[in-house]
Amino acid sequence: MKRVPLSELERIYEALKSYGSVWVRKKNAYETAETPEELLSTVSKVKKPAKFIFLPEEEPLLAFVQDGKNVTFQEVIREAKGVIFGIPPCEAKAISLLDLNFLQGEGEDIYYKKRRENVLLFGLACLAPDSRCFCTTFGYGPFTESFTDIFGVVVDDVLLFEGITEKGKDLVKNLDVEDAKGEELKKLEAMKKEITERVKKLDIQGIQEKLARMMDSEIWDKISSSCLGCGACTYYCPTCYCFDIQDVERPNWGYRLRTWDSCMFTLYTLEGSGHNPRPELKYRWRNRLMHKFNYYPVLYQEFGCVGCGRCIEVCPVNIDIREILMEVKNEPIRA
């Protein structure tokens, strides 16, 4: 592990800048830093997760020109390059879950990939998990480094850090910094234990199998009864990725636009004929919960939730996924 005093962060800032943009945590979103001081953000949970950088709320895919019966088009790829500094483990893990959808399988999503490949994740341990956090439920915690390229911890007034991936190690190698001191590492271990234990872990053992048997349960009525059917939970969720593709038309030209979409919207599955396979909120809720806690595990052996608690906070009516998981767990299964 390396160390750099927080008062001398400009020593790493320049190196980070050489990669491109340096995004830092601001209250509402990750924003590019203009000064090294901005690396010292104390925001523990950015409202809009770093997913916004890899999967922006809108992005053009193609632009086209029409000339009579003829059409020509060009790919438009919005790139991103740089380092996200201070991304917490939950968001880094969430990005690894997005990778499963966008980078695996037959068609790699080159739009996502172009940004993902060129943005390094400089993670920081989360020192202030809040009352909504339940990350440890999913087999990792506020000090888990494995989803980042470089991982650091602020211990008192020093940043300790190390390269995790090859790319991360390369960056660290070229920095003019000294090794961490023994007492700092000792303190880090103590912090890790104390802070990790502070996170309230849920017991969701067997939830994937339980859900598989609950397709026709009455629980979906109950769960969805106060839901308004807006898209807030999904938009702020760091692992939700569903999107829509629509064309925007101007006289003789236009572009194909990808925007976020939400499985909580009626229109998401409404067909041209008027038929809707998920006609009521309860079916949409079932799908959302199943997707995260049954379908994702079936497809990728990973839950599609990282326990960041954003959905709990942004929900207009405070629907709490933790309560729902417990309700699912406690629901008796009818024979």
Partner: peptide, 24 residues
Amino acid sequence: CVRCYACRQSCPMCYCEHCFVDST
């Protein structure tokens, strides 16, 4: 605005099955 439509969905008067904003 992030177009989550929480305003519309929470509104007692926004009961339209097909909102103008979704119309193509």
